[in-house]
């Protein structure tokens, strides 16, 4: 464990707390893409199946359980409890175009052709594009509530900080996982446009307006 990975995981934890807090307190999931949340639930389910077979550490287990519970809780809020506030018309990204290529790529490019390893690889590839429906929705509505943009900033920072973790681990332990690194870079690059707007607008108290 190193400080970059710890900060990355905390950033991820903060993101899910911000999201749940926003939905619970405003009793609304306006502006939130249910499709991205479905993809995240798929990602964490496929990646954290090893909860039953491998024990890494208490921290590892605790965080996996938190991310699994929070992703399903968010889906419950969006599609059931607060479904009246779900903006279905603006959440139209075809997620099958993200899932199928991730499945195919995981079957073709992986470290080991075993059930858990292919699922892990699938989750890594899918996570790198899972935010697209959300970013697409924000660009369609042309704006995002500031709380939603804080959520996106924390979520984007999580994998961005992991890149520093991978650099550190390569330099200090000669450990690297090329699949996680490439996917993590792709994932972070997808946020760059948003990061720019967040820093130049939201931090100055303006509303986040994406060019539609």
């Amino acid at each position: 464990m190193n400080v970059f990975r710890l900060l990355g995981d905390l950033s991820h934890l903060i993101a899910v707390i911000i999201l749940l807090q926003k939905i619970w307190h405003t009793r609304s999931c306006a502006g939130i893409s249910g499709k991205s949340q479905v993809l995240f639930a798929l990602v964490y389910t496929a990646r954290y199946l090893d909860l039953v077979s491998t024990y890494v550490s208490l921290y590892n287990t605790f965080m996996k359980v938190i991310f699994l519970i929070s992703s399903y809780a968010t889906i419950y809020f969006i599609y059931m409890k607060f479904r009246a506030t779900y903006d279905r018309n603006h959440d139209t990204f075809r997620i099958e175009f993200l899932i199928l290529p991730s499945v195919l790529l995981a079957l073709l490019i992986n470290h080991q052709f075993s059930f858990l390893e292919v699922l892990w690889t699938f989750s890594i590839y899918l996570e790198s594009v899972a935010i697209l429906p959300q970013l697409f929705m924000v660009s369609k509505t042309g704006e995002a509530e500031s709380i939603t943009s804080h959520y996106l900033f924390a979520l984007g920072s999580y994998r961005g900080l992991y890149i520093f973790n991978w650099i550190y681990r390569y330099w200090s332990e000669q450990h690297y996982d090329i699949i996680a690194i490439v996917a993590g870079v792709v994932q972070t690059v997808l946020y760059c446009d948003f990061f720019y707007l967040y820093v130049t607008k939201v931090l100055k108290g303006k509303k986040l307006q994406l060019p539609a």
Binding site: R47, D50, N60, H111, Q112, N165, D177
Partner: peptide
């Protein structure tokens, strides 16, 4: 590439 015996990252 490094074959991961188990993935220790989240």
């Amino acid at each position: 590439p490094q074959v991961e015996e188990s993935h220790d990252e989240l």
